[in-house]
Amino acid sequence: MIDSDLFALPRDVREGLIAARARDRRRSGGKLRVQVGADWYPILSYDDAGFEVAPDVAPKLRGLVEIHEGPSCLRTALIVAGEPGRRAVRYEFKRSTPVRDTAPVDYERATEAPAGYLGAT
């Protein structure tokens, strides 16, 4: 069911579906999760400005965290806690850095550089 279709349902049914989705996400662990030290918490929603975690799952989080999708790390971020809500606690990124798979370079790379060199045979 698409989220926009939820508005066509009665209010109590809609709230029950939303609660069931949140419960299923917490049970399965979700694909997205936040790592704080050695602890992991499932993420309910995620965007470029921050993420949401269920209030009964995670304690007050703050400081440096890592956002993971499955086994791969997406970004490291410095977070600050937002207002806790009924459904989730929103954490905003104060600073967010995507994880790179290559080391940063301190020189300009040529755009027309060869891919490799052939040795003498």
Rank of each mutant, 00 (worst) to 15 (best):
G30I: 03
A8L: 15
A58R: 05
L32F: 07
D101I: 08
D47S: 10
E108P: 03
D47A: 03
R87L: 12
R62H: 02
V99Q: 07
A58T: 06
G30P: 04
E83A: 01
A49W: 07
V13R: 15
G50H: 07
A81Y: 01
E92L: 08
G29E: 06
A77M: 15
E52K: 09
A103H: 02
E112W: 05
R109Q: 12
L64V: 14
F51T: 01
A20G: 12
L64E: 12
P114S: 14
A54M: 13
D48L: 11
M1N: 12
E112S: 08
T102F: 01
P114M: 10
Y46R: 01
L32P: 04
Y41D: 05
E66K: 01
A113R: 15
D56W: 09
L17H: 06
A103S: 11
P114Y: 09
A20E: 15
S72P: 11
R11N: 07
G70R: 03
P104D: 06
T121G: 15
G63N: 07
T111I: 13
V53Y: 00
Y41I: 04
V80G: 02
I67F: 00
D101C: 10
L17M: 14
H68M: 09
V105T: 08
S4R: 15
E52Y: 10
Y91N: 00
A38T: 04
W40D: 14
G16K: 14
G29K: 06
L17W: 10
M1L: 15
H68S: 04
P98M: 09
Y91Q: 02
P55K: 04
H68K: 06
E83R: 00
T76V: 13
G30K: 05
L78R: 02
S72H: 01
E52D: 11
G85V: 08
K94Y: 01
A88Q: 06
L74Y: 03
R21K: 14
L44V: 02
D12V: 06
T121V: 15
W40A: 08
E92I: 01
P42M: 06
R75V: 08
A22M: 15
P71G: 07
G116W: 10
R33N: 12
V34K: 00
L64F: 05
G29N: 08
T121I: 12
I67D: 01
D12Q: 03
S72K: 07
R95K: 10
L9T: 02
D101W: 04
G119I: 11
A38Y: 02
A110W: 14
R87N: 07
L17Y: 08
R27P: 10
V53Q: 00
R27K: 11
L74E: 08
A120R: 11
D3F: 08
G63W: 04
P98K: 05
L44M: 14
D106I: 03
R21Q: 14
R14Q: 11
A115T: 07
